[in-house]
Design a protein around this nucleic acid. Structure first.
Lengths: 298, 298
DNA sequence: CATCGGTGGTGCAAAATCGATCCGGCTGGC
DNA sequence: GCCAGCCGGATCGATTTTGCACCACCGATG
């Protein structure tokens, strides 16, 4: 009889492409993965991978096994989801995933309020760059900005929130200096992988052709606060920052709509219901800030 | 993350009804099962079993989990089946399941011939009382006696063999003694759990009302050879035994039809094809013996 | 009422597994 | 052309898991 847990290692290697990558995902030493794969292949009596110097690649047999291994994983996830969905106690873990910017510049105070309100709920904010997969139980609730509602995952329950607008911002000091006849050039501050959005205009100010690139949203904000130039920001970031003002003559642009996503069986959990009700009220209160109506255009 | 192999232990306990029964099935110490179930419950954060003095019984949560655990098992079995089905080498394991009587009194010489013909095939004859489940990969080939072809499992591939007839037998010596005016009473020899089949008649001989019961087919044959009385036997047993004769005036009765069963993906294996072709030829040659036509009625 | 076969549970020693580390080989970028 | 960063593989000591023996308990049975 094969060890079912070995199939989990098999999946990790098949996806990671190498033993070491798989070990990183699972969180074990790579030699463990090596041994478990060898054990699985021995018990099945067939090679699942070609052992190349560049990594492990699936053989034809491995490709066929992959399909069933995915089925096992799906059943395992459903199993966990079903057990978790029965959990009606208030104490326990609640994992929320959302974009880092939303966490840092808008919702962290609300998360703190919620945590104070329910001290027995253990909270985990999964706020990395990638989208966490609710079906895989990487998180219980997701707060997402969705541009086209047709792109919402069909298997998830979605609760609509306010629309999200963005604008073009610069530092208050830089605007004053520019009005006084700026000595320094004004540059576009962009995130490398994104570039300048097509909707953004410079408004009344003039920028040099030489952009200033950052890899990270926080670095971008820090740069614009330093008066390096102008950049596009969500209104809830730019309008809430006393050091920043909208670039005169620039327009707002709708980024998308906020959605609260939960998964079927997990949604029935008391913790999840408490959180979604709490945070959707807070989001509704933030609607003017999010849509850019909190301040009057100057 | 849960250990997927723990789900296998969960299934064994759910089916066995107790930790010790599950340990017996899996082939480990019962304390191991105890610890793995405790680990699973801890990681899931829910009780799967009520710990009664009489054993482990599923909780409501456990019932819900059982369904998904079965799915995982089904995927695991399909996975093994698919890998095994790719195996086109002649060397390796071949497991055959069939009724003990068929093994001992008819086919063992043929199995021996096959093993001599293919010395690199490791053979295993699974000839316990219960039907082995091909879908669970407990065996690769099954030889079954089927009374109604509608009862054949639909998911298996079935190859029809000869019909199987039975009759009423007694020892040659007893018949002679009875014809000479028997001093001893002639008894019905029956297997306890079966009783006297409704189709069987005593023929010309007279039996006492007191039956002789055995638990086991081999004991039944030994008893009739000892001249204890008359009994129903398959023709291939009774006709092939020089010590036995059919009871004068008794009739034959069709027991059913022999079928060679294999499972879809496993059927494509070279070993399985070699075996089914070999054994179906032998079965065809045995047709007169199996249908009771090998000897003329006296 | 004692016994016997079944249950779950618990220390402790042995065995199997795992993690850290080192090694050789490959590859791509400077 | 060299070096850094991957890769798989092997080794060895530490850690975890397992098996074994035992216990208490419960129910049926003689």
């Amino acid at each position: 009889m094969i060890d079912w847990d070995d199939v989990r290692y098999f999946l990790a290697v098949a996806r990671g492409g190498s033993v070491r990558a798989a070990a990183g995902r699972i969180g074990v030493n790579h030699s463990t993965v090596l041994r478990r794969i060898a054990q699985l292949e021995e018990r099945l009596g067939a090679q699942m991978f070609e052992k190349l110097p560049s990594g492990y690649r699936l053989t034809a047999a491995g490709e066929e096994v992959l399909e069933l291994a995915n089925q096992m994983e799906a059943s395992s996830h459903q199993l966990e989801t079903r057990v978790f969905g029965r959990d009606q106690s208030v104490r326990g873990l609640l994992r929320v995933t959302l974009a880092p910017t939303l966490t840092a510049h808008l919702l962290m105070p609300d998360f703190a309020d919620f945590a104070r309100l329910h001290p027995e709920i253990e909270m985990e904010i999964v706020s990395s760059g990638e989208l966490a997969n609710l079906t895989n139980r990487e998180a219980d609730v997701a707060i997402r900005v969705v541009y086209d509602r047709k792109t919402l995952p069909l298997n998830l329950h979605a609760l609509k929130g306010p629309d999200l607008f963005g604008g073009v911002y610069m530092s208050r000091d830089l605007l004053a200096a520019w009005r006084a006849g700026a000595p320094d050039p004004i540059r576009w501050i962009v995130i490398s992988m994104h570039g300048i959005p097509d909707w953004a205009s410079e408004g009344e100010v003039r920028t040099t052709a030489v952009p200033f690139k950052t890899t990270d949203g926080e670095a971008q904000i820090a740069a614009v606060r330093q008066g390096l130039g102008i950049t596009t920001l969500s209104c809830f970031v730019g309008d809430a920052d006393p050091l920043l003002v909208r670039v005169p003559g620039s327009d707002l642009h709708m980024h998308g709509t906020l959605w609260l996503l939960t998964q079927g069986e997990i949604r029935t959990t008391k913790r999840v219901r408490l959180f979604t009700e709490f945070i959707s009220r807070r989001l509704a209160a933030y609607a003017p800030l999010l849509t850019g109506l909190s301040i009057t255009r100057d």
